[in-house]
Simulated assay, not measured.
Amino acid sequence: MRRLLRPPLRALLAVAAMVATGHALASSCAWPDWEHFKQNTLSADGRVIDASTPQQVTVSEGQAYALFFALVANDRATFDRVLNWTQNNLAQGDLTQHLPAWQWGRQEAKDSNKGTAPTWGVLDSNPASDADLWIAYTLIEAGRLWHERSYTALGTVLARNIAARETAVLPGLGRTVLPGPVGFHPQDDVWRLNPSYVPLQVMRQLAHALPQQTEWKAVLDSSTKLVTDTAPHGFSPDWVIYRRDKGFGPDEQSKAESAYNAIRVYLWAGMLAADAPARASVLEKFAPLADFVAAHGFPPERVDTQTGTAGSNEGNGGFSAAVAPYLAALGRRDLAQAQVQRSRTLAAQTAPGYYSQVLMLFGLGHLDGLYRFDADGAVVPAWTSTCPALH
């Protein structure tokens, strides 16, 4: 009899110890959109697949977002699969030594006449800093929330490598995130930057969580300027040029458009905590976007940021999901709810692609109360307190 009682007693003592030390396992909250994403876009071994591309590509940004969603969902098994696939396939097996390659997918056979089967591997090895920042941030947050030191250590080392390889000190701006290690400093006095790569909550939490890496405080300051000082008519550009002694200016290569990159700027802005520094000025900066949505019922797909003139095409359902938190943050909840409904309606009519899905997971998940960010930029998933009642 004594032998039969030992395992349950051990289990009870272990649970008691976890509770006493804050290690108790929390339950997951229902998140149908995440389950759908896993079933339709995420492979069994942890690869986010963009099925709309001929090469069935995976980009490091998609892997980063999947890590974040898995943390929000308290889905550690999926988190580990995504992390392992990313490390093994994009980072040569070691994220402490290599920033992940940007793009992986099917490589066409060199001689199709011989019937050689295509191989799979890295298509573009240049890292993308937006993905790298989200991966580092999510690892650090996973270490904190799941009490796992190995995640914290890996995120800390990755952040150090990002600072070393994907930032530069720009005259008059300070240390700034570059979109990647190669290709964004075309002339001695010119840099090409991307405002959507620097979510202010992510940058703030890196500065807060890594005080020993002093670069991140400077990067937070430059990121705030990159977001707020590059939208002369209230629409953020996909890409922007920074010139020594001249500051920010339009990027001719992207025609100074606000489109598929910049839609994330409004998303990140709308998810800032109510007491986050600079929130009021960020929200105010993009008020013309809210006015456009109020007048037309949808966000524009493309805008000329130098004139504020929108094109004729409507943004897709992912765009609506991305702007909904911003509209809610402005207090325009009727507009926000209309965009949520538009996003859901369009998704029901035509299955959204990879990018629209991640915009929906971010935007609708936030509005549904599945997670939020605090003033320091730390993520607060609902499973750490009370799960919301989903509509």
Rank of each mutant, 00 (worst) to 15 (best):
M1C: 07
P8D: 05
L9C: 13
L9D: 09
A11L: 14
M18D: 10
E35C: 06
G46N: 04
Q56G: 03
G62F: 00
A64T: 06
Y65M: 03
A66G: 01
L71I: 09
D75Y: 00
A77L: 08
Q97R: 14
S125W: 12
A131T: 01
L133I: 06
W134I: 14
I135Q: 03
I140F: 09
V157T: 15
A164H: 13
A168Y: 06
L170S: 02
R175V: 05
V177S: 00
L178V: 09
L178T: 07
P179M: 13
V182H: 13
Y197F: 15
V202M: 11
A207M: 11
P211T: 12
L220T: 08
K225Q: 13
V227Q: 02
T228M: 12
T230W: 08
G234T: 10
D238H: 10
I241K: 05
Y242P: 02
D245H: 15
F248D: 03
S258T: 04
Y260D: 07
W268T: 03
G270N: 00
G270T: 04
S281D: 12
G317V: 04
G318A: 00
L330A: 09
R333S: 04
A338I: 05
L359W: 04
L361I: 02
G363N: 04
G365S: 11
G369T: 10
R372N: 03
T386N: 12
A389S: 13
